[in-house]
């Protein structure tokens, strides 16, 4: 991971492409599993949003802190979490990062990679992220906290409390809104008084940046700038990445509420294609093949892993 790509830009783009395409294969593999085998939880597909997730996280340093959102695995994979524990969490396997307490995508974590987890109540990570950043400020550890959230979660009151305090204290935190136009059945345009989530930033005295969420490198650059600003002690930034919810809220959601053309399989402005354009065909095919194999192997391994023993129910309540 790098902050200042410079002459390594090409290498960075390839790395972002590799991660994005890996997560794309993961998305397709998981969808296939959910459709064929059924699934004891909710899978919130992030297909089409992988570019912005990977782009943003690629601007983070290894010891920066991450609070991800519920739409897919791009965030955590980009932060360095291997696929197998992520699939393990999804499938409720003992090999998951939560050692079998998972199921669905809501919780996974990797303390060593500073992937701090997620709350099941939307908007928890606004206040938690600000608190993590306050700790970094106090300790002077130079770390930045990045918090992802959806357009729907932007309605939570915790946003107000966290944004205000973070801005007043100039905390090293970057908020990234994935505006995919929908919060379950609620259309963003019907639940927002402003055209953009980023329009609210000036009220908190912080920059609000709008970026094309289908352009992974643009999101990378916007995030890198915000992270630099945060690390310099100049406070938080709100980034709004414009994207699209390609699938239902969860896989299997028939979306009776949706009156825009339901996108289904087609991904307008597909980040995979956009990133792939600048990579020579043979190189790209090599990356694709490797990514596909990696996903297949990790998924098979997760499927083969045992489910957790019931004893885990009583573990980790207390330290």
């Amino acid at each position: 991971m790098t902050n200042d790509p410079g002459p390594d830009r090409e290498q960075l783009e390839r790395e972002v492409y590799r991660k994005v395409v890996t997560i794309r294969f993961a998305e397709l593999r998981i969808r296939d599993h959910v459709e064929k085998e059924g699934f004891g939880g909710f899978w919130h597909p992030g297909i089409g949003q992988e570019g912005l997730q990977v782009g943003a996280v690629s601007a983070m340093q290894d010891d920066d802190y991450l609070y991800y959102a519920h739409r897919g695995l791009g965030y955590a994979f980009a932060k360095g979490m291997p696929l197998e524990p992520l699939f393990g969490d999804l499938l409720g396997r003992a090999s998951g990062s939560t050692r079998g307490k998972g199921g669905g995508t809501v919780h996974f974590a990797d303390a060593s990679r500073h992937v701090l987890g997620q709350g099941g109540t939307l908007g928890s990570s606004f206040v938690m992220g600000a608190g993590t950043a306050a700790a970094s400020q106090l300790l002077g550890d130079g770390r930045v906290t990045v918090v992802f959230f959806g357009d729907g979660a932007s309605g939570r009151g915790t946003w107000h409390e966290a944004a205000l305090q973070a801005s007043v204290w100039k905390l090293p935190v970057v908020w990234i809104c994935e505006n995919n136009g929908w919060a379950l059945s609620a259309r963003f345009t019907e639940q927002s008084p402003t055209e953009h989530v980023a329009d609210r930033a000036p009220a908190y005295g912080m920059p609000g940046v709008i970026v094309d969420g289908q352009d992974a490198m643009a999101v990378h650059d916007a995030t890198a700038e915000a992270i630099d600003r945060a690390r310099r002690g100049e406070g938080p930034t709100l980034i709004e990445a414009k994207t699209l919810r390609i699938r239902g809220h969860y896989e299997g959601d028939r979306q009776p509420y949706r009156d825009d053309p339901v996108l289904g399989d087609e991904i307008p402005n597909d980040p995979v294609h956009r990133l792939g354009e600048s990579i020579p065909d043979d190189v790209r095919r090599g990356i694709d093949a490797e990514a596909r194999t990696q996903v297949e192997q990790a998924f098979d391994a997760a499927l083969a892993a045992p489910r957790a023993d019931r004893s885990v129910i009583f573990e980790d309540v207390w330290a």
Binding site: T132, A135, D141, G157
Partner: peptide
């Protein structure tokens, strides 16, 4: 003022922020 910090009126931040600050190695 950094170790004894006055906040705005924001209880979700005071507690949620403490949770987040604990994850980063402090004892709020």
């Amino acid at each position: 003022p950094m170790r004894v910090r006055d906040t705005a009126i924001n209880e979700t931040f005071i507690v949620g922020g403490a949770a987040g600050a604990a994850l980063a190695g402090t004892i709020p």
